[in-house]
Measured scan of single mutants.
Amino acid sequence: ALNRGDKVRIKRTESYWYGDVGTVASVEKSGILYPVIVRFDRVNYNGFSGSASGVNTNNFAENELELVQAAA
């Protein structure tokens, strides 16, 4: 299972961040479909780089994520 702070690569092909590595911000335990919230260094097309207006978190299912580096 994934944990907060883990570095993960995104495998959801239609995602803006496909192939990117993000950090797990939190994992919901309530049984929702996309329980893993991942935070990225770059914002998506809703904002400009360096601006706070873009979105830099997204929810994924565990099977859409590949663990790159476990949290220390």
Rank of each mutant, 00 (worst) to 15 (best):
E64V: 02
V38K: 00
V68R: 03
G47P: 15
F48M: 15
S26R: 12
R39H: 09
L2F: 12
N44D: 15
N44K: 11
G47M: 04
S26W: 09
E14Q: 07
A52N: 11
R42E: 15
G54W: 05
A72C: 14
Q69H: 08
S30H: 07
S51W: 03
S53L: 12
I37D: 03
V43H: 09
D20F: 06
V21P: 00
E66V: 06
V55Q: 07
F60G: 01
K7M: 12
I10H: 02
A71V: 11
V55H: 07
A72Q: 10
Y16G: 02
G54F: 04
T13R: 10
G47K: 04
D41G: 05
S51H: 09
F40H: 02
S15P: 01
S49M: 12
N56F: 04
R4Q: 14
K7H: 07
A1P: 11
V36A: 00
I37Y: 06
V36L: 03
A1V: 12
T13P: 12
R4D: 09
G50W: 05
G22I: 03
L65T: 14
A71E: 10
K11A: 11
T13N: 08
Q69A: 11
L33Q: 11
G31P: 09
N56S: 07
S49A: 12
A1T: 13
N46A: 03
G54L: 14
K7V: 08
K7I: 10
L33V: 11
I32Y: 08
R12V: 06
V55F: 07
F48W: 06
G5S: 00
N3S: 11
A71K: 08
L33T: 11
Y18P: 01
D41A: 06
A61R: 09
K29N: 13
S51T: 13
R12I: 07
A71N: 09
E14F: 07
V38R: 00
S30M: 09
A71I: 10
S15Y: 00
R4I: 13
G19R: 04
S53T: 14
R39W: 07
D6N: 02
N59M: 10
V27E: 01
R9F: 06
K29A: 13
Y34L: 09
I32M: 11
N3K: 15
Y16Q: 04
S15R: 01
W17E: 00
V21T: 08
Y16L: 04
S15I: 03
D6L: 03
G22F: 03
Y34P: 08
I10M: 01
N46K: 02
E64F: 03
G22N: 01
G47T: 05
T57M: 09
K7E: 05
S30I: 10
Y34R: 13
I32L: 08
V27P: 02
R9W: 03
N59Q: 08
W17A: 01
F48V: 14
W17Q: 01
Q69R: 08
T13E: 10
W17H: 02
S26A: 14
K29M: 12
L33Y: 06
L65S: 03
D41K: 05
V38L: 00
Y45V: 15
N56M: 06
F40E: 01
F60Y: 09
G47C: 15
G5V: 02
W17S: 00
T13C: 14
S30F: 11
T13Q: 09
P35R: 05
K29D: 12
G31K: 09
G47D: 15
Y45E: 15
D20I: 06
N56G: 03
E14I: 06
D6W: 05
G50A: 08
T57E: 13
L67K: 06
L33M: 12
L67A: 02
R9Q: 05
N46M: 06
S49L: 11
R39Y: 11
D20W: 06
I10A: 01
G22V: 02
Y16M: 03
V68Q: 03
D6G: 01
Y18V: 04
T13V: 13
N59S: 12
G5W: 03
S51V: 09
D20E: 08
V36C: 07
P35Q: 11
N44P: 04
K11W: 09
R42N: 14
K29W: 10
I37E: 14
R39V: 13
S49N: 13
G5A: 02
D20S: 04
D6Y: 01
V68N: 02
Y45Q: 15
V27F: 09
R4Y: 14
G50Q: 07
N63R: 08
E14R: 04
A70S: 12
Y18M: 03
S30G: 08
D20G: 03
D6P: 01
N44G: 03
I10R: 01
F48E: 15
L2A: 10
N58V: 07
T13H: 09
G54P: 06
K11T: 11
S15H: 01
I10T: 01
W17M: 01
F60V: 02
V24C: 07
E14N: 09
V36H: 01
F48S: 14
D6F: 01
R9Y: 06
N63A: 12
G5E: 02
V27T: 04
L2M: 08
L2H: 04
I32P: 08
F40A: 02
E28P: 04
L65D: 03
E14P: 06
V21N: 01
